[in-house]
Amino acid sequence: MLEQPATTPPQRQAATAQETAHVASGLRARKRRKDRLTNGLAYFVLGVIALIMLYPFYWTLITSFEPTGNIYQAKLWPSGFSFKNYVEVFQGTTVPFWRMVLNSVIICTLGVTLTVSFAALAAYPLAKMRFPGRDLIFYAILTLMVLPNEAGLIVNYSTTVNLGLLRQDNPVLNVLAQYAAVVLPGMASIVGLFLIRQAYLGVPMELIEAARIDGARELTIWRRVMLPLALPTIVAFSILEFVAYWNSFLWARIVLRDKELLPLSAGLLELSGTFSTNSRAVMAGAVLTILPILIVFAFGQKYFMKGIEGAVKG
């Protein structure tokens, strides 16, 4: 009587364990079947969405290679193949294509280098130095980020005019000034500042203290300690900025008097205006405009996604 309760539970447990194993395997098989079904369904839905997302690009690409035919038709393959439209764009009879490529390269190089440098410089004292006014500046910048600024375009245009950046008196200096006019308004990136500051915060204080004790100047610490340790964030931010500068067209169209200085994405809209007789040439131009972005995106995708997440969280 006394021993029974001690002996039966293990037996019962074994039995239930066996039962459970049986039931579990059954469940697992059913789950596997169900999983296969839901996976199949998931792939189908994913495929349909991918088609919607990518077909417009594919359609533009194949149409840009067609010499003639029904241009706007829905199609899976090009009706013919030639580089005619690309040659037309490259020759730049109505729009100086190569000049616009050069403009884009100049604007992106200037824009990305300076935007990233200024943010990386300014983030250092905000993250790792003690000085009066630090919190004030930090919160002022934070407030500025959430403050809506719908008159920004208007006032920045007025500022650009009043700074004399659109003056037409010296052919060489005016070109430089107009490039500056395009790039300057976007150069203080608050998002970038917070992203990089966040990365700096993770750098151990001991490292910086040690360098200071060794008599390193702050600029050296910034260059030799902070920048290398924040490199992944800086790369991510640089890619974000490259895409932003390459894609922006509105400000350039507003501010540039000289159509010769337009970057590619803005020039594309000029192209669509002047080339209205040959939309396929505009399509070729569109393909050429996307290409660099796709290449950068393909190589820096991991950084890019991290940057987006960080930009919103920061």
Binding site: L54, N247, T289, I290, I293, Q301, F304
Partner: peptide, 11 residues
């Protein structure tokens, strides 16, 4: 799904 995001509104 991310390709349209990185493409310019001009394009």
């Amino acid at each position: 799904y991310y390709v349209p995001v990185v493409t310019s509104f001009a394009v």
